[in-house]
Design a binder for these strands. Structure first.
Lengths: 204, 204
DNA sequence: CGATTTCAAGACCAATTGGTCTATATATCG
DNA sequence: CGATATATAGACCAATTGGTCTTGAAATCG
């Protein structure tokens, strides 16, 4: 361990913008337009940064994209960790989790789509950095859903013959497919009914 | 009705390339790279056409893309019409249909992805021509799956409480989600097992 | 103050974009 | 043959791409 130097504040003009807020705004652009269709001017407008500042802070477009993607993933995982919290009734958790997807895949929300699914389709196959993140996200979701299903099963809430492991993979595919079909902006009632019909097959 | 003129053959050098084959090759490029990431030189290389011929035959990049997408959709619908043929055992048809997705969503096939899903995510929200095609395809799939499920139900092959209409929407979401998750190139056995577990919930 | 640092504005760059057009070769007709 | 039509190769175009660099104005320090 090296001795702690007295922290020596920087001397010049302090950083005056919030990098994390810039990442969030950039995320919004990539989300709406996709990676290739997003041009530098789009990002400058959204982040309200100058070219120089943006490149100084993030390196290049691809690095900024990865930060935006990481942010999107962290948000999604954080949401799941609340909805599928182990201290909660597992079936309630699953309902909340699926209700979130109903929300995100109907009407205008549906039409906007999902940065992660769009990125998976656009880049995951040819960009290893992206591929690892996408695979990691699906894995994280699968794990959380499986754990929740296991707790539901222990509580006798699963239909006969439902295996948490395979059911979790089914649910992951289903919700990601909802996001795809959601691009056609289906009515909320449609997504809602579909989700309920699916849940009926798994919950006692 | 105007009188039929004697068909008057064209007089000059005849067209020497097969437009439909060019569309198919272009489809392959869009499929592998996506719309925005496909540049003109990629299309010229794949179709083996000169710039002039390509623009004369197809107008512009976007029109060629629409033809490629139409071709992809026609192929997919044609496949379904065979797999889900009304003269076939409905449950066998569903198994064949799902087996096709297992094939297309595992390993290298999975990594390559699906032109339709990629297009849905990349363009459907902002390009009305594309949006209509994507929505039409999902509708076509849903109809065919629903009809098959109805026949299965009439034959007493469906599990209790399964409704063909909602089950068809579930299956459509599920298979499109398989294509998304397939971008991480899962093992064939994984996709296979997931599909079988799903079918178990619906088939008696 | 003067040193230091960060900012925005925008000039600038080479490469690439989708798209047009010209020149020329070639194939088919009457 | 001569007229007609179609092909290719590639020059050419303006606009845009991602990315660098310069300038000069602020903001903070000792």
């Amino acid at each position: 361990m090296s001795r702690q130097t007295p922290a020596q504040l920087p001397r010049g003009r302090p950083r005056s913008f919030d990098a994390e807020a810039a990442v969030e705004r950039a995320m919004g652009v990539f989300w709406s337009r996709g990676y290739h269709a997003t041009a530098l001017p789009d990002l400058l407008r959204a982040t309200k940064l100058s070219r120089g500042s943006l490149y100084a802070a993030f390196g290049d477009k691809h690095s900024l994209f990865l930060r935006a993607l990481d942010r999107y993933i962290a948000d999604a995982v954080g949401r799941m960790d609340i909805e599928l919290d182990p201290r909660r009734e597992p079936v309630d958790g699953l309902r909340a989790y699926l209700a979130g997807y109903v929300d995100r895949t109907s009407g205008a929300n549906g039409r906007r789509g999902c940065l992660l699914v769009a990125t998976a389709m656009e880049l995951a196959g040819r960009d290893a950095e992206v591929g690892r993140r996408v695979a990691g996200f699906f894995k994280a979701m699968e794990t959380r859903v499986m754990d929740t299903l296991s707790r539901a099963k222990a509580a006798g809430k699963l239909a006969d013959g439902v295996e948490p492991a395979s059911a979790a993979r089914i649910l992951v595919c289903f919700v990601e497919g909802l996001r795809v079909v959601g691009k056609t902006a289906p009515a909320r009632t449609t997504s809602q009914a579909t989700v309920e019909a699916l849940l009926d097959r798994f919950i006692r």
